[in-house]
Design a protein around this nucleic acid. Structure first.
Lengths: 236, 236
DNA sequence: CATGCCAAGTTGACGCCGTCAACTTGCGCG
DNA sequence: CGCGCAAGTTGACGGCGTCAACTTGGCATG
């Protein structure tokens, strides 16, 4: 467990560095002497993340992103149907980054299935804490048709799949009771997602829980659920 | 001038009687022959809920609410400092309604502490499912200063307090292990809030869990956590 | 090398939004 | 009875998402 703690903190720091690098890359505007940008699509995604990290979700405006890159207000429409499509692409990128971070955190735990499961949950909450605004964009309700962005759905499924596979692996070793892994994984997703939402919403300080670090709370909450998923009559 | 956006395909299904009554009350516009409205402040809150339930969060616009009530675009500014203040008031009303619904659900379980705890969680998730848009407004991040709306904070605390007291009562009967009730209640809030968020976000159908009713999922998820909160070495 | 296609980017406009300043109305109190 | 002041109105400003029409310039082809 101590290993999980230090490992988690190291990962969080590494993630922040990667994030800073991405944000720095995003600031790069269009070269003045060039008419065409080169890779405006990716630049728009980077700039959107940078903007939302720096000034909050509210500042995430299509015109603002274009301004940041030195292109005209209508330029984004060459690459995204509308603002919602840009948001969906940002969300998808965030989900893939989250899945990668969770995967690394689990891999760092070796073969201990219980530790791997817990590392997934802690990584989820820490990602949300480290990249609050981005996390919220990832889970903003998209008002459009649910199936309008299939690759976004696939990205959600990738995150959920990590939890489901961890549950299934624990079941195979008798660490988790029998039952539909999807239902049990839903409980896991719910608890880490709920904690992440409450934390990014600023609820924790008001409850007198500010003293506890994100990592601590995430670990204890995840452990409580894991105990509840144990085979009946056993203790963890 | 009076161009009505008639996109009313999506009707609120299975609306509770109280909610329907509130929405009906909200539609009531200002009497033509009267200059003053009477109780515009409450009417604005009702209209905002009605609008968001009927056309989604995106349609929640200050001008739209005023239009619905037949008053001018600037009229709301007599009662709310800005749009965010209106949203905060809507959120507060929703939180108080949620707390009331949770309290009733628990009371219906009599003296069985475990059943009361579970009823609280199920009521939370069912409220979110029945009043999705309203629920999302309740937990939209308010970009302003955290303490700008103290009565809103108090309303969050009221919901959390129900969970914390239920946990404490279970501890007193030896149904839940010892420990800071706030930390344990945070785990409970996290799991029901996470499930509610994932459900209102439309994640469940994509996981092949659409067959299970909201009530079933909420009950099983809540029970899993409750088992995990039991004193060590015991089974539920 | 000349040419012309067409993806990529620009300009200007429209309607809607939040918000404010200045004005008007009419309820209720002395 | 008259009048102060809260409540509501009008008109305006800048910013937003979006679209139609236009321009630029990289690139394939003769």
């Amino acid at each position: 467990m101590a290993k999980a703690t230090s490992e988690g903190k190291r990962q969080a720091r590494a993630a922040k560095a990667a994030q800073a690098a991405q944000a720095a890359r995003a600031v790069r505007a269009k070269p003045r002497d060039r008419y065409h940008h080169g890779d405006l699509r990716q630049a728009l995604l980077d700039a959107a993340v940078a903007l939302v990290e720096r000034e909050g979700r509210r500042a995430l405006t299509l015109r603002g992103v274009a301004r940041l890159l030195g292109v005209s207000q209508a330029a984004p429409y060459r690459h995204f149907a509308d603002k919602e499509a840009l948001l969906a692409a940002v969300a998808e990128g965030g989900l893939r980054a989250l899945a990668a971070q969770m995967g690394e955190a689990a891999a760092a735990q070796g073969a201990d299935r219980a530790a791997r499961f817990q590392a997934l949950g802690v990584a989820y909450v820490e990602f949300a804490a480290a990249q609050t605004a981005r996390f919220r964009v990832m889970f903003m309700a998209l008002s459009a048709d649910e199936g309008a962005y299939p690759s976004l759905s696939e990205a959600y499924g990738q995150v959920f799949g990590l939890l489901r596979e961890a549950i299934a692996a624990c079941q195979a070793e008798g660490l988790v009771r029998a039952g539909d892994p999807r239902r049990l994984a839903l409980a896991a997703w719910s608890i880490v997602h709920g904690l992440a939402e409450l934390e990014t919403n600023g609820q924790l300080p008001r409850l007198g829980l500010e003293a506890a670090a994100t990592h601590d709370l995430a670990a204890s909450v995840t452990r409580a659920l894991f105990v509840g998923l144990a085979p009946r009559g056993e203790k963890a």
